[in-house]
Amino acid sequence: MLLTGKARKFSQEDDINTDYIISGRYKFKIQDPNELATHVMEDLDPGFFQRRQDGDFIVAGRNFGCGSSREQAPQAIKYAKISAVIAKSFARIFYRNAFNIGLPLVECDTDKIKEGDELSVDLSTGIVTNKTQNLNITIKPLPPVMLTLLADGGLVEHIKKHHGFALKQ
C-alpha cells in the first residue's frame, strides 16, 4: 500500500495525548465520526482541520496518543482523511485502537521530516520517502499480530471472519 501526502507537525512533538487529539468536550456528546473529525487536534492546534488536506500525514515525536483509551482519537484522525500517523513511538492503547479501526501507524525516526514536506509511505517495503528532502527513512517492522489484523481489515472483521481470535501464539 502506497500512501502520499504532506507532513503536518505541531508545536509539541512528544507526548501528544488523546485529549489533544479529540477533546472530551466533543467526544462525550458527538457520535458521528465525520463531525468529530472537524475537531481533530483542536486543543493543540486550533484550525488544524481546516489547514490539513486529504491524505496528509500527522508527524510527531515520542509517545503519540498517550492518555485515555478513547477510540474516538484514532477515529477522528481517520475520518479527517489523514492517511497515517508517523511517530517515533506510540502509547499502547492508542496503538491497538488505531490498528483495530484500520488507521495505519508508522514508527520511525521523524527528526528529518519538516512541516509541509511531501512524503510517500510504502507499508509493504517499510520505507518512508521524504520527497522534499530527498531521503528514505526505514520503518520499524510491524508485529505479526498487527499485520494479521490489518490484513483482515481490523478487529471487527477479524472476529467476524474467524468467529473469535485466530492469532498465531
Binding site: 478513547r70 479501526i101 473469535g164
Partner: peptide, 20 residues
C-alpha cells in the same frame, strides 16, 4: 488494563482477547 472500545467489544463477544 484499559483498552479501546472495539477491544472491549471483542471481550464482550468472545470472553477473550489477545495480549503481549
Amino acid at each position: 488494563t484499559g483498552m479501546g472500545s472495539t477491544d472491549v467489544a471483542a471481550c464482550a463477544a468472545t470472553g477473550h482477547n489477545w495480549f503481549k
